[in-house]
Amino acid sequence: MSAIPHSNSIENHNEEERDPTKQKLEERRDVDGRRILLHNLNSLRVPFIVSSLITTHKVKTTLINTTKVLEGTVILDVSCGAGILTESLAKLGGRVHGIDPSNDFISTAKRRAQLDKSLSNLEYFTSTVHDYAKKNLESYDAVIASDILECVAEKESFLEACIRCLKPEGSLIITTFSKTWMSWMQNVIIGQVILNIIPRGTRKWEKFIKPEEIQEILNKHNCRTVEIRGINLNWMKKKWSWTLNNNHIYALHAIKNR
């Protein structure tokens, strides 16, 4: 949910007065709005997170290819929004914590989670990552920062706080937009202005960051980048796919050194 924070906080606020059961089902089936983009993005980022945790041996081999593949792992979803990704990870058995500075988001996320009793392994807290890191040093097998970095001005201190929450040899997983002309065209002009898929102003190209730049920050803070994969969005079909070029959007996996 983090990718379109501002518009959704208004939407979700209005939904509060509705019957929660009905709302849950509606939310579950509500796919034609902007949410479809994020829902569909899960089909790339969830497998990316799962395979990252498999390569770092955080996943029991007997659980691979089962619905409990993340059982035994502890995961932090930073700026989780209303929890679209967080819930998906919890469904796969991980102990998942979602944090977001917005109270609105966290209460929506909590409400959604309460309606699915099977999600007992999921918890939400209203907090910035900086505050959260103070009390949760080296607690997580994986920290996820999906579609948030491009909204953050102070990237280095944000990433540093994320890294502090990671156990040694834990995985930091990021998805974000690259700062290239191509991404400017695709995401700012087409996405925000022409198609109106991303609400105007939520993505500022000045805040986009190239993979090399992130890598540099991560190196400085004792992390080694092990994988970068380009992501392509077919705007018309609202479908995401992997691509060899990191010029638009990309996923990055880094491991915290011992």
Partner: peptide, 14 residues
């Protein structure tokens, strides 16, 4: 199977 393994709802319209 892939949808479930990506943590998606069963029978998601997409």
């Amino acid at each position: 199977g892939e949808a479930a393994y990506s943590g998606r709802e069963l029978g998601h319209i997409s």
